[in-house]
């Protein structure tokens, strides 16, 4: 039997209200028609190239987007809609964010107090991550990269979170450190948390995650099982296949072209300008996700 769905996001779109020169209001769409769900005890990777707005997904779920953001779509936590009010109560408790870097800690506050005001609780989580309790008395700038990583994980663990959203937790880390960080998340999932791992490093994510949602130009084009990445044939969407080919051990063949920018998104399939499979249906209209071989894909011609 499958575990219960902790978080489901369907048809999510995020846009920013911008005022251009003539005080003309414009909406800049950065996320559109995005669908993901994550179950208890599993890690879902949201993978896509850097700078494609993946972090905004995390911020949208947590309800901490800037004021000029407009969010549409359905976000449910444990089956119930995750309203602004509800998420305000849950964040920092049942729903936790693990941020990317030291920049996310107050530079002038000792790290222990940022993890939690409760000193003995901090000591306990620190012990779990093999951090000496003296680390709590340090300022963020005094931590090494590895320590930093563990302190940031500790902020999620201490709250006993059921849903952990990790935003690019391994940038610029050595392979060894990154592997260790991923193991921490695997452990948290094995203990029953649902983990969403936002990353640009598919190769690294494959070894530790259960499913991978492929993020392209602000939408998810496919959600595949991690095992589907064993061979190109198991994958469904042309972009996922292209990503697969770009992984070093699969030949490192990048696809031509670039992702469209928010604000100049094509109508219809966002991948169409670069797609080899493109047919007449692709040019207009939203594409609803379809279930194929236990995964989900947004493509008219995927098989």
């Amino acid at each position: 039997m499958e575990n219960e769905v902790v978080l489901s996001v369907s048809g999510l779109s995020v846009s920013f209200r911008m005022y251009t020169k003539g005080l003309e209001r414009r909406e800049l769409k950065v996320i559109s028609n995005l669908n993901i769900n994550v179950r208890k005890g599993e890690i879902l990777a949201v993978a896509g190239s850097s700078g494609s707005g993946k972090s905004l997904l995390a911020h949208a779920i947590l309800g901490i987007l800037p004021k000029n953001a407009v969010v549409e779509g359905d976000i449910r936590y444990l089956g119930e809609p995750l309203t602004k009010k509800r998420v305000a109560k849950l964040r920092g408790g049942e729903i936790a964010l693990v941020p990317q870097s030291v920049e996310y800690l107050d530079p002038l506050m000792k790290v222990g107090r940022q993890v939690s005001p409760d000193e003995s609780a901090v000591e306990k989580v620190f012990a779990r991550y093999k951090l000496d309790k003296s680390v709590g008395k340090l300022f963020p700038f005094q931590l090494s990269g590895g320590m930093m990583r563990r302190v940031l994980c500790a902020t999620a663990v201490i709250s006993g979170a059921k849903l952990i959203i990790a935003d690019e937790p391994t940038p610029g880390m050595s392979k060894e450190l990154a592997d260790r960080a991923m193991k921490h998340f695997r452990d948290l999932a094995n203990e029953g948390a649902a983990v969403i791992l936002i990353t640009h490093d598919i190769d690294l994510a494959l070894g530790y995650t259960d499913r991978i949602a492929v993020f392209y130009a602000g939408t998810t084009v496919e959600t595949a099982l991690a095992s589907d990445f064993d061979s190109e044939d198991k994958l469904r969407h042309p972009y996922t296949k292209a990503l697969w080919r770009a992984i070093p051990k699969n030949g490192f063949r990048p696809t031509e072209g670039t992702q469209p920018y928010a604000g100049s998104l094509p109508d219809g399939c966002l991948f169409a300008p670069r797609c080899e499979l493109k047919g007449e249906k692709c040019a207009c209209g939203a594409i609803e996700p379809r279930n194929i071989r236990g995964g989900e894909v947004c493509c008219h011609y995927a098989a």
Binding site: H59, L62, I64, A88, R91, G92, G93, A96, L97, P99, S101, E103, Y104, L105, D106, P107, Q114, T155, S159
Partner: peptide, 13 residues
């Protein structure tokens, strides 16, 4: 507008 305030909010402050 800093990242650490964003994270503080994410921690429920």
């Amino acid at each position: 507008h800093s990242d650490y305030v964003l994270f503080a909010k994410a921690r429920g402050e």
